[in-house]
Simulated scan of single mutants.
Amino acid sequence: MNKFFLIAMLVGFSINSFAQKTISGQVLEKDTNMPLIGVTIVVKNTSKGVTTDFDGNYEISGVNDTDLLVFSYLGYKPQEILVSNQSTINVLLETDAQQMDEVVITALNIQRDKESLGYSVSQVSAEEVNMAKENNVMNSLSGKVSGLQISQGNTGVDGSSRILLRGVTTINGSNRPLVVVDGIPISNDSGGGSQWGGVDRGDALSDINPDDVESISVLKGAGAAAAYGSLGMHGVILVTTKSGGKRKGIGVSLNSSFSFT
């Protein structure tokens, strides 16, 4: 009886180990908890696989407990997870800095691989912004972004600048692009001067310290600025400022500049 009982247990274990089932779950970005679209989920050493939908959800059938699921996505570190007795597997993918050489900030401050975007995005780094310092950080973009025209007024060093992205699109309205700093839109109106006179007191963009800028992304076209609606009809300039980071020892940064106008 003991031998028959042991054989029955081994047969039952073997059947349960190779019983196929369906695994479902969601794949999110680790830093932002945003769903990832088009993540590839493959059963290792097989051709069986699926991709995530618009909400990052997936469902793969015909999987055994001993199978390994491989989650891979461009610009992210791949993960391998043993199915075991799980029926729901949620995954957080971590960005791979070594693979994402050309990462740009897109609408709503989301980082994306430049090659995966279907619209035009130009990015200017902090080194380029601070190469020749300007009181108005927008003036540092002059000549660095295609289709961006910046005209500095002759009202002094603190005067406002006229910014056009891909030319004039309206006659009786403002053609200025929307400026967003760390996800918050700011005023881009001139400081009071006009063709009829007045006093130019500068604009809000001159309040941004160039040393605090990490990167500037310029979104061109309707597809790029769709997330901002009618506010982004003339394009969007995204300014991302620096954030604190952990480091060993004491970090000292010294910067000095002098200009004469």
Rank of each mutant, 00 (worst) to 15 (best):
F4R: 11
L6A: 11
V11A: 09
S14G: 10
I15V: 11
I15N: 02
K30H: 13
D31V: 05
T32H: 06
I37V: 15
V39C: 00
T40N: 13
T40C: 11
T40Q: 11
V42Y: 06
V43A: 10
K44D: 14
N45C: 12
K48R: 14
K48I: 04
K48V: 04
D53I: 06
D53A: 06
F54T: 07
N57W: 12
Y58M: 03
E59C: 11
S61F: 05
G62N: 13
N64D: 11
N64L: 15
L68C: 13
L69F: 01
F71E: 00
L74D: 15
Y76R: 04
I81E: 06
Q86W: 08
Q86M: 10
T88W: 09
E94Q: 09
T95F: 13
T95I: 15
D96P: 02
Q98F: 15
D101P: 08
V103M: 12
I105S: 07
I105R: 07
N109I: 07
I110C: 08
I110E: 13
I110M: 13
K114V: 07
L117K: 01
S122P: 05
V124T: 02
V129S: 03
K133T: 14
E134R: 03
N135W: 08
N135S: 12
N136R: 02
V137L: 05
M138H: 01
S142N: 14
I150E: 06
I150L: 09
I150D: 05
N154R: 12
D158C: 13
S160A: 08
I171P: 14
S174G: 05
N175E: 02
V181Q: 00
V181H: 01
G183R: 04
P185K: 04
I186S: 06
S187Y: 05
N188L: 08
G191W: 05
D200W: 05
S206T: 10
P210K: 04
D212I: 05
S215Q: 12
I216V: 05
S217H: 02
K220T: 07
A225Q: 03
Y228E: 04
M233I: 12
H234Y: 09
G235H: 02
V236Q: 01
V239Q: 00
K242E: 03
G245R: 14
R247M: 14
G249P: 04
N255L: 10
S259D: 10
F260G: 15
